[in-house]
Nucleic acid binder design. Structure first.
Ligand SMILES: [Mn+2]
Ligand SMILES: [Mn+2]
Ligand SMILES: [Mn+2]
Ligand SMILES: [Mn+2]
Lengths: 220, 220
DNA sequence: TTATTTTTTTAGATTAATCTAAACTTTTAT
DNA sequence: ATAAAAGTTTAGATTAATCTAAAAAAATAA
């Protein structure tokens, strides 16, 4: 059984490696976990001994099969809890992350399977992130940045990239959540901002930076 | 902020001291937490330094006001989570304790207030234990052991003393949960066992040991 | 291709929680 | 009242997670 700390390392490496694809450097991990490189070196040695990752001195780490499975389960727990907090307890979507950071470490398979069922086996969390299933399978959605959308087209918001509370609160003001349909009404060339129409017909202007952080999918 | 370990000590001392009344010995704590007396001595010194308890060398500890408040909040969290697991997730009442032991350490006042509201501000947990309110107030019920009940009388089951999985599973077989009404039909003098009638009119025999571990209240 | 900068690792400490064994204090029994 | 037993504390180690500072390796620049 892994400690909270070990679990946090595995999850950090998973995210930093883009779902276990690339190798991750000591410094990247240290930065992400707000710790020091020397600490990371010690920890990755330990995780390598547990066969959760492959470690090549001076060249970073990459998750093993076992490491990926472990990471996916932690991500599954994190996202199920976030969904619970928003859907059942009435949290705002910008309030859930820190709590889920704690809840993701609770050890009980029964709990997670029952929670999953209670939530109706959701496929995405409140931020549109896919929830790995019981077997660690992640449903991939064909999505792209709103900044790449075409003028006049309708799309469904699928995910938000920036998870900061301020950004989430800003989007919440317009009920701009994953699942809602929007239409691009105008794209302003000089600064890349765009005017989009919301479900309630209201039109709002989104900066380039904002539209880049909203992912959308086609509205078939 | 207290560590999990510190919280577990405070809660253990609270329970062992009968809600903070009596002083508790080093050995009692060690036994309860399945650790060694030397370890306990170290920890209670630390907790004394944090003003959570008063420690007199060789004479045990007693919780301070602050210690009691802390304990009550942990107990509140534990029991709210147990209630959630049974009422919302469909756990059996013998399956919740270990999970609640973990969940009780999650730090988020917002979470607990929302969970409390979601559950409809329950007054007792699945085992009939009172849930301290937001301010740490515990509702006391006038209750006594079923073994003290009078032949012929009807009572409401209010609490179970023994929390072992086997005992809880045994009672579950007869739907003998807090809240159900039972009537004592016969008390057998030679071994103190009794025959009680359940809500569904079924009659079952309970040993003395069993009836001593079921608490009841008057059925006004 | 060397020198400089950046990154990573190692060495040596520190804090929290735990243990065993020995010393000490209190309680109980003779 | 003394001796034995029981309970508690202290002393000294250990493991996990962390840090700073120094050494080493790799990457980059001159
Ligand atoms: Mn999150
Ligand atoms: Mn999320
Ligand atoms: Mn419990
Ligand atoms: Mn309980």
């Amino acid at each position: 059984m892994l400690s909270f700390t070990e679990e946090n390392y595995i999850k950090a490496i998973y995210h930093l490696s883009d779902a276990g694809q690339l190798a991750v450097s000591t410094n990247d991990i240290a930065l992400h976990l707000q710790t020091k490189a020397a600490t990371v070196t010690d920890m990755i040695k330990k995780l390598a001994n547990k066969d959760l990752l492959a470690y090549e001195k001076y060249y970073g780490v990459s998750l093993s099969k076992k490491g990926k499975t472990t990471a996916l389960y932690i991500v599954r727990k994190h996202r199920l809890w976030e969904t619970f907090l928003v859907k059942k307890l009435g949290f705002q979507w910008d309030e859930v992350h820190e709590v889920a950071e704690q809840l993701e470490h609770i050890q009980s398979n029964l709990l997670i399977e029952k929670l999953d069922a209670f939530l109706g086996h959701p496929e995405t969390d409140p931020h549109g992130h896919p929830i790995p299933d019981k077997n660690g399978k992640v449903k991939q959605v064909k999505q792209f940045s709103l900044s790449q959308g075409k003028n006049g087209s309708k799309y469904i918001v699928s995910e938000v990239k920036d998870g900061s509370a301020t950004f989430l609160q800003y989007l919440a003001k317009y009920d701009l959540y994953p699942g809602v349909t929007i239409q691009i009404k105008e794209i302003l060339p000089f600064d890349g901002s765009m005017i989009v129409q919301l479900q309630n017909k209201q039109k709002i202007t989104l900066s380039k930076a904002t539209s880049e952080n909203i992912l959308i999918k086609n509205n078939e």
